[in-house]
Design a protein around this nucleic acid. Structure first.
Lengths: 111, 111
DNA sequence: CTGTATCCTGTTGGATACTG
DNA sequence: CAGTATCCAACAGGATACAG
């Protein structure tokens, strides 16, 4: 009866690896609303540098959560969107946002 | 109509700050099952050092998600448990675990 | 048992400049 | 516009030793 985490500890850890990055959840949330260009994402994630944003996007792409479509134009245009797999996270994003709204008192109280 | 993240981007970020640490979600999950002593947690979170575990526990405590009860015994005993506030995260933990189970194929595929 | 203190290394992330 | 390249500082995290 000491096996209670074999099914959910490692899984939880694996999931965290997907969107545990400091900016990944916000990015996923933004893309859940709209396909967005690089600059649009950057504007919507305050105080993230191009370097870090690039890195986070690459990781999300490598994990199959988002897609990257590059248009061969001048000036260049790149659009990011959730993949079908990434879209399966949307309910979770909504739950997290709902939990936060419910708990905002506690959050601000501690701060 | 460009306000879609004022309500949920920052909130998501704030929530991530609570359990975004690499080990926090596993720790919370473990404590959602049982009150646990320091050593018990350490055994159940593979390859976490005492230093990091201590740090994560302190942060979770500071955020009001877990409580720390120290017994003045020899040898010392310390028990960690979810606070009422921490318990409100349980449904979220369950959702995350459920999502992972549903998506394990994609997860292993990408790896 | 439950930590703290110290040292040390690797990674992360900011600033800046540059490219196609 | 959408990055890449480079340098650098700060912090995270492991190993080890020690303490109450």
């Amino acid at each position: 009866m000491e096996k209670e985490l074999d099914d959910t500890d490692c899984p939880v850890t694996a999931t965290i690896a997907l969107f545990g990055g400091r900016w990944k959840l916000p990015i996923l949330y933004i893309l859940s609303k709209n396909t967005r260009r690089f600059g649009e994402i950057q504007v919507r994630v305050p105080s993230i540098s191009k370097k870090v944003l690039t890195n986070q996007l690459r990781e999300l792409e490598a994990d199959g959560l988002i897609s990257r479509k590059q248009y061969k134009e001048l000036p260049p245009r790149v659009e990011y969107a959730l993949t079908d797999f990434g879209k399966t996270l949307c309910p979770l994003l909504i739950d997290i946002a709902a939990w936060q709204r419910k708990s905002i008192d506690n959050l601000t109280k501690v701060k």
